[in-house]
């Protein structure tokens, strides 16, 4: 009973750690009537305490480093981080810039990551990543 709930109810908190806003627009596009992520129970929430999934965009800048880690720690378990866009995976166009603290999975390795490559990725790809995330959350709940 519990595992199936995760399959149809994922609440997403969105963090921008210094991205160019392209991926953020695509995340919003996934919620518009055209793609309508809410039909799968995916909802954008305003507080990390409510979230199951963190939609993470941007390479982490030095300024955002501590804040981003703090937000991830505030999210209740079980949680999943979906890294949206090339920047979050390897820096993208900002690769090896002087102001970067590195990609998020190096800074905070103790979490489950899912990656959506693209600059920016299409909304279909973002929704597919959420589908992968709920499959993993189901597995966690079964154990």
């Amino acid at each position: 009973m519990i595992p199936k709930a995760f399959k149809r109810s994922l609440w997403v908190f969105h963090i921008n750690s210094g991205s160019c806003n392209g991926c953020d627009i695509e995340i919003i596009a996934a919620l518009t009537p055209r793609y309508d992520a809410e039909r799968f129970g995916i909802k954008l929430v305003g507080s990390p305490r409510h979230a199951d999934v963190i939609a993470f965009t941007g390479p982490v800048t030095n300024d955002m480093k501590d804040k981003v880690i703090r937000i991830i720690e505030q999210t209740p378990d079980p949680k999943v981080i979906v890294v949206v866009g090339s920047c979050g995976i390897g820096g993208g166009v900002f690769h090896e810039s002087y102001h970067l603290a590195g990609p998020i999975d190096k800074l905070y390795p103790n979490a489950k990551y899912f990656y959506v490559p693209g600059c920016p990725p299409r909304p279909e790809a973002i929704i597919q990543a959420f589908a992968k995330a709920w499959e993993w959350l189901e597995e966690v709940e079964k154990k």
């Binding site: 519990i2 199936k4 109810s9 609440w11 309508d36 809410e38 039909r39 129970g41 209740p76 079980p78």
Partner: peptide
């Protein structure tokens, strides 16, 4: 959802939300 031209969540969605919240860390 229908008024906004979307398909919208199934009607049992709030039950699923509650079950999910119950299984989360407090």
């Amino acid at each position: 959802a229908h008024m906004q031209g979307r398909v919208g969540p199934p009607i049992r969605q709030p039950f699923l939300d509650v079950i999910k919240l119950m299984s989360k860390e407090n």
